[in-house]
Computed example of a mutant assay.
Amino acid sequence: MTLEARTREAVRAELERLVDAYGEVPVDRETVTNEPDLFSAGRELAEEGWLGEAGAWVENEAGEILLVRHEGAPDTWGTPGGAHDPGEGLADTARRAVRETTGVECDLTSLYFARWKTVVNAADDDERLHMLTVEFEAAATSEDVSAGADGVLEACWFGTLPDRLHEVPARKVADDGE
């Protein structure tokens, strides 16, 4: 079986597990073309069993939202999350990534975002792989925050959301406001 077929099936199966556990979610589909070096790095990860990435919109009992700023985008705030580790489901990835990036433990309550991305090699458009990015809603089970992961500049609770949000949490805010 080709890498494209294996990653397509892995993404399909994981999305099916998530929908069974958390309910239906609209799935954005996107195709991107990566330069050969970037595609090669993604191919290596996919061959090891990497599925994509996951994060969570974490709310505490006071109704505050947990957000982080990263070195790569220091002027915007996003949900804590990170890359999938082979052998775990994306729900496990989200819980682990929240804990590693912020020190906060959480319970996932629902799935609100899914993007199935097809990645094409710019040097050979017949070479493709698939990945999944998901975002959960979650309830904090602890509240002490510490920016713990490499590249995380700051992690904190917000009662009033900042103006500059990354794309996915900004979409959530816009969708919830409708």
Rank of each mutant, 00 (worst) to 15 (best):
V173L: 09
P162A: 09
R171V: 14
F136Y: 06
T118C: 09
D85P: 00
G87T: 14
D126W: 10
A54L: 05
T2L: 04
N60D: 12
E100L: 05
E53P: 01
G82A: 01
A94R: 00
P26F: 09
F39R: 03
A13H: 10
A13D: 14
G42V: 14
P36V: 12
L165F: 07
E44S: 13
R8G: 05
A138W: 07
P36T: 07
T33K: 01
E178M: 06
L67E: 03
L51N: 02
K117H: 01
E48N: 08
G78K: 04
R17F: 14
Y22Q: 06
T118Q: 11
A5I: 03
H70M: 11
G81Q: 06
T93Q: 00
P26E: 11
R115T: 01
G151D: 08
G177P: 02
R12W: 02
Y112W: 12
M131F: 13
Y22D: 06
P74G: 03
E127W: 10
E100N: 10
E44R: 12
G78A: 05
D28E: 15
A94H: 00
I65N: 04
G78P: 10
W77V: 06
V27K: 10
V68K: 03
W77C: 07
P169W: 12
A170S: 11
L111Y: 03
T160V: 15
H84C: 11
F39S: 01
W116S: 08
G42Y: 12
G52L: 12
V173E: 05
A147M: 07
E71T: 03
P36W: 02
T93S: 01
D37Y: 04
R6N: 01
P162K: 04
V25T: 04
